[in-house]
Design a protein around this nucleic acid. Structure first.
Lengths: 259, 259
DNA sequence: ACCTGAACACCGTTCAAGT
DNA sequence: ACCTGAACACCGTTCAAGT
């Protein structure tokens, strides 16, 4: 601590890493609030600066630009999703139900954090990706590995427990990808319907995810098959055990998962 | 035609619809070239105006703004895709191969028109959608109906010919959507790998589409099943019959579909 | 009736001046 | 060593003046 001639306590000349992290987080938080309130298209650096107690120059010390800030938000979102995925993967049920649970947790995340979900989608565009710092991009890749790791683990268990036999023409990576792209496609295309119960179409996101999962897994001959097990009840139980708090928040918002 | 006092041929005071359409198209074409050359993130209205023989004011008579222009490009892209879809749907093979062909045509489109493909994805963001004219948005919805119509038709045929029995818990709309979201998810997530043969991962887009289609359709018990038919050869034949020109262009670019 | 481009507003980014 | 905000550049959009 440095005390100057008139006894005023000055801020330390070299900022410790912890307070730097805290400051960075406060900027990210401010940006998220702006996105929640007025959409990602209306996020401006001026608005962010107005919301935090630091100047423009300081904000630009943390982020190389607006896109870098978006990617930082995106990374935070992926970290939240990775937590949900791993909680689902560690559930004590059979592998097939765990995968169903994991995919449903993707929807839970999209409903609970619509602004974060949209930011991640948006950050996939070359626009954002191309203007971000290499560090932030590397961080994103690591976080995505963590996501895929959870999916990979469940497939491993399914194969080890002999409930699933790998098709001769596919490896585990391809299975992980098939599973991921199906959920991604469904939630992306129905993202406008995600938050409300009834949208402009008759499609209900959770129903489509549930059905498509069952179709794909039946196609893989992943035991137990839909005809041999009440996956609906098994999933309901798993959801209540693993994500009770999340379901409660959904309920308070009047959004009950109906698959 | 109006001739003024010094005999100079003046442009007619009231422009006919045809030349208006042509002018609009020339603006769209200029924008597409800019996107192809420097990416959608570097498209500016100034660059568009510089490329066409009209002024800013005239460009803004055709499009309410930059986003409206993007949606116009997006609509043109969907029209091209709809043409491919319908050609696939009308092929004279069994329904399951036709659907496989249709989904593969989505990939062909993404490879042939990467700029258009990215523009469509980009236009799905609220940013673009929110700032476009209602007419253009309505046009998009109609074009998407046309896309879904092709998919719907193939499912109808499959059911009529009794090769596919609708699962009790799903209707045709849900099947169409399942099929669509799977292709969409795969191509979107692998969009960086779409143009090149080998990307950073070991995933090959066409292989994943081929496998995922077979898994989903086997899950539906859609005849003939993968084990009873050489879908690979059937698809190869269908591709050569329906999309010979497109395959040739791909080949010239060194991009051979390998599923 | 139609077209033009100067002018304006807004926003991302930088950097000289300050503590 | 760190912070600040005025200043700059760029870009989307408008509209008064022109033909």
């Amino acid at each position: 601590m440095i005390i100057n001639s008139i006894g005023k306590c000055m801020t330390p000349r070299i900022l410790d890493e912890k307070s730097l992290k805290a400051r960075e987080q406060s900027i990210i938080d401010a940006a998220i609030i702006i996105i929640e309130q007025s959409g990602i298209e209306n996020l401006t650096m001026d608005k962010v600066v107005a919301k935090v107690s630091y100047s423009k120059g300081t904000v630009y010390k943390h982020f190389t630009g607006k896109e870098d800030l978006l990617l930082a938000i995106s990374n935070q979102a992926i970290a939240i999703l990775a937590d949900l995925f791993w909680r689902a993967a560690k559930f004590s049920g059979c592998a097939r139900i765990r995968m169903l649970l994991l995919n449903m947790s993707y929807l839970i995340y999209a409903i609970l954090h619509p602004a974060l979900f949209k930011t991640v989608i948006c950050s996939k565009s070359p626009n954002v990706y191309g203007k971000s710092s290499p560090e932030r991009i590397q961080e994103q890749e690591q976080l995505e590995m963590k996501l895929l790791g959870a999916i990979h683990g469940v497939f491993d268990d399914a194969i080890t427990s002999e409930k699933l036999v790998l098709p001769s023409y596919m490896d585990i990576q391809q299975l992980c990808f098939a599973n991921w792209s199906m959920s991604y496609g469904t939630i992306s295309l129905l993202s406008e319907e995600v938050e409300q119960c009834s949208g402009r179409t008759s499609l209900v996101v959770e129903k489509e995810i549930f059905n498509q999962n069952n179709l794909l897994f039946d196609g893989l001959n992943w035991q137990p098959l839909t005809k041999d097990n009440n996956h609906r009840i098994a999933l309901e139980n798993a959801l209540m055990q693993v994500f009770p708090d999340e379901l409660l928040i959904l309920k308070e918002r009047g959004r009950i998962l109906d698959f």
